[in-house]
Amino acid sequence: MAEINDARRDQLNMPRIAPALSPPFSRPPSRIAIRRVNRYEADLSALLFETLREFDLPVRDKTVLLKPNLVGLDPLGMMNTHPAVIAAARETFLRMGASEVLIGDGPAMDRDTQAVLESIRLREYAGPLSRIFVDLNIDAVERVELKTRASRFKELYFPKTVRGVDFLVSLPKLKTHHWAGVTLSLKNMFGVVPGGCYGWPKNILHWAGIDRAILDINAAVRPDFAIVDGIIGMEGNGPIQGQPKPCGVMVCGDDPVAVDATCSRVMGLLPEKIKYLAQAGTLLGHIQEEKIRQLGESIESTCTPFAVLEAFCHLRRNASGPVWNLNCL
C-alpha cells in the first residue's frame, strides 16, 4: 500500500491545503465551486477538469486517493456515489498530473466489497480495478492516536493507504441521514475505518456517538479536497432507504467543512443546526458563508429543499420545507 507518510510529506515539502486542526480565525477563506449538471451521461470529466483547474491543487506527480461513498449493494444506483462521478474524478486528477489515482472505500454494511463494486458496475466506468481499487476494510492498518478526543476514543486503527497517500479526496453523495441529519464529505470518512478491525457495520462508531466520531476521524485523516455527487441525491430516510432526489449539482472545494456547509444550504438546511457540522466549524474548517469564497453557481439558484425526517425539522432553513412522511411508506 502507499508508503508516503507524514514525515515523508514534510521532506517533500508537500503541504496539505490547510492544517487539519486550527480555529476559524487562523484559517484562510475556503474555496467552493457549485457546478450545475443534470445528467450522469454529461461530460463530467471535462466539467471537473475545468472546475478543479481553478483550485491549483498540488497533485502533480503525487498519489491521490478518491474515497467514494460505497455503502452497500446498489443495483439501482440510489445510495452510492455514482460510478460516472468516480471515473470522471479519477480521469481529472490524472489529467492534472497525478502519478497515481487510487479508489478506496470500506463499505459499512456489506463485507463483500467485490459484490458492491459489481452491483454499481464501477469497472465499466473506471476500467480494470485490480491495480487501482483498495478495499479499505481489509487493508494493512496502523494505530493512530487521536488529537481531538471528541468521542471516547483515544486511538483508532486506520488503513495505511489512507495515511500514506499525498492527497485525499472525499467523494460522497448528497444525502440526508437518519441519525446525523446529512451525510456528506465528513460523514463519508466513516468508510475509512476498517471493518477488518471493527466489523460490518462499524458499530463502535455509533456507540461512541456519530457526531463526535465524525470529528475524531476527520481530525485524524482530514480530506484535502471534496467533490460531492449531487446530480441525484437522496432525501428522507437516508443514507440507504431514502428516495432519489434530483438536485443537478456537483459541489467541490478545498475545505470539507465548507463543502458540507454549502451542500446543506443547497439542500435547504441550516449547517449551524447540524450538530457535527457546527462543531467541525470550530476546529476543522469554515461553515460561515462570509468565510467561503463562492465560485460557479450561487446557493440560491441551485437550492433544492430535501425532505427530512420529522426529527430533523429544526434543520430546515424554511419552516415550510418538506418533511419526510413515514406514514406514506
Partner: peptide
C-alpha cells in the same frame, strides 16, 4: 428501519 424493509445479503 423506519418501516422500510431491509435488503438481505448473501454473506
Amino acid at each position: 428501519v423506519y418501516g422500510v424493509a431491509g435488503e438481505p445479503q448473501v454473506v
